[in-house]
């Protein structure tokens, strides 16, 4: 499998505190990966760096087969290049309908003029219907997103990410605050998504990670502590120390 994203030797510090310390990380095309780690391990900062929100002090981030340097791109350009990001808390446009939320996310021209003159095609309508079905919101298409339940909002956001047709999906704690049934649905969604693209899931919940059944990377104090299957890393002495010891 070809490498899709390569992060190497990245460090960043805030007021002297090293949030990310010489982190190197790779993900291949179509791979599903879980990233775990205690609070303050640098999981969110890692996502911030990949998506362009935070500029690292050193290191580089290389993307795709043409080896583009992501550090020189803006957030919007990175998103257009094919990296989707889901935030910890569900962030959908609550004032707008589910339909509009999805239409806005569909992979189309992002320039102001193109958007202004945009006319919905039959294909776009179809795509929205498909996505709605996939995330289980077909009946809610014309409700305002703000009226949805917490879980539905999470799915809507995942649906919006899928609408972008990214090649890499970064998902921050998708299962937080969900009921058991909702979790199952979420797991399926992510597994489904990972069939056609790479997905990185940051998660606290070991049960959820086990269900994803994928390679796991353990972060600690801003760098990779261990990598491998879940069983492999949970037997690693360093990981046990970090999670249980201290």
């Amino acid at each position: 499998m070809r490498t899709l994203l390569e992060v190497s030797g990245v460090s960043v510090s805030f007021d002297g505190f090293k949030a990310i310390n010489n982190l190197s990380f790779q993900i291949a095309e179509g791979e599903l990966r879980a990233v775990i780690g205690p609070n303050g391990a640098g999981k969110t900062t890692f996502m911030d760096i990949v998506t362009g929100k935070t500029r690292p002090d050193e290191g580089y981030v290389i993307w795709g087969e043409r080896s583009v340097n992501l550090l020189k791109m803006s957030e919007a350009q990175i998103a257009q290049a094919g990296i989707g990001r889901k935030f910890q808390r569900p962030t959908v446009f609550e004032d707008q309908s589910v339909f509009d939320n999805l239409i806005m996310s569909l992979k189309n021209d992002r320039g102001p003029l193109g958007v202004l003159l945009y006319r919905r095609s039959a294909r776009d309508n179809e795509r929205v219907q498909e996505l709605a079905e996939e995330i289980g919101l077909t009946d809610h298409l014309h409700r305002k997103a703000g009226e949805l339940s917490h879980g539905q909002k999470q799915w809507l956001e995942i649906g919006m990410l899928l609408a972008q047709e990214p090649r890499l999906l970064l998902v921050d704690e998708p299962a937080a605050g969900m009921t058991l049934a909702e979790r199952e649905h979420t797991t399926n969604l992510l597994k489904q998504a990972a069939k056609t693209r790479a997905v990185v899931v940051v998660e606290h919940d070991m049960e959820f990670v086990r269900r994803l059944d994928c390679k796991v990377t353990v972060l600690h104090e801003g760098s990779v502590l261990a990598e491998g299957s879940l069983d492999h890393v949970t037997q690693n002495q360093d990981v046990i120390d970090v999670y249980l010891g201290r």
Binding site: T51, A76, Q77, F87, T91, M160
Partner: peptide, 12 residues
């Protein structure tokens, strides 16, 4: 409503 979300959807 949410500037960051729009940005990560790929809009400048």
């Amino acid at each position: 409503d949410d500037e960051a979300r729009v940005r990560f959807l790929g809009y400048s």
